[in-house]
């Protein structure tokens, strides 16, 4: 049962990522990126990460992409600036080398994981929340501070200074 869904969501993720990166219009890129994140959320459900699937849709496909769309709207590109792709053979070589290295790393995966599967892994929100709010409280609070710092940073950066 897992197999058709893996190929459905995985294929959709790759296809929409390709479209995101190689479509001319930034608005279309943003829309395709939302679809790519939605397929990732489907893969998270296949991997028993239900809470993360919900957060992926809410935060990534919702909040972050709205931010991207707003900024694209604010910047309001002229149509002559839409074309913007520079392909250098070195870049293709770098990407190919990177993927080859990844292939090498994946193919001799150590014994730390169970390659076939499957222990009785429980990924329901209750388990995740309990772990998050007991053992990971301090990092959780640290993240709230980081978000506060980001809010302050954006306000400071976005303010128009008089000498600008």
């Amino acid at each position: 049962m897992e197999l058709p869904f893996f190929f459905l969501f995985g294929g959709a993720m790759v296809l929409f990522t390709l479209l995101t990166m190689f479509v001319k219009n930034p608005v279309h890129s943003a829309i395709f990126m939302i679809l790519s994140f939605a397929s990732t959320a489907g893969l998270f459900v296949l991997l028993d990460a239900y809470l993360m699937a919900a957060i992926e849709v809410l935060v990534y496909a919702g909040a972050i992409m709205v931010l991207f769309l707003f900024v694209i709207m604010l910047i309001n590109l002229r149509s002559d600036e839409l074309e913007g792709m520079k392909v250098n053979p070195l870049m293709v070589l770098a990407a190919g080398t990177f993927f080859a290295l990844l292939h090498r790393a994946i193919s001799d995966l150590g014994a730390a994981v169970d390659p076939v599967r499957a222990n009785t892994f429980e990924g329901e929100p209750k388990v995740v929340a309990k772990y998050l709010f007991t053992e990971m409280v301090i990092p959780f609070e640290a993240v709230s501070l980081l978000l506060l710092a980001a809010i302050l940073g954006t306000v400071v950066l976005a303010r128009r200074t008089r000498d600008a």
């Binding site: 998270f44 991997l47 990460a49 994981v113």
Partner: peptide, 8 residues
């Protein structure tokens, strides 16, 4: 997330 599911 995939590593998490297949962890020993």
């Amino acid at each position: 997330i995939a590593f998490n599911k297949y962890m020993l």
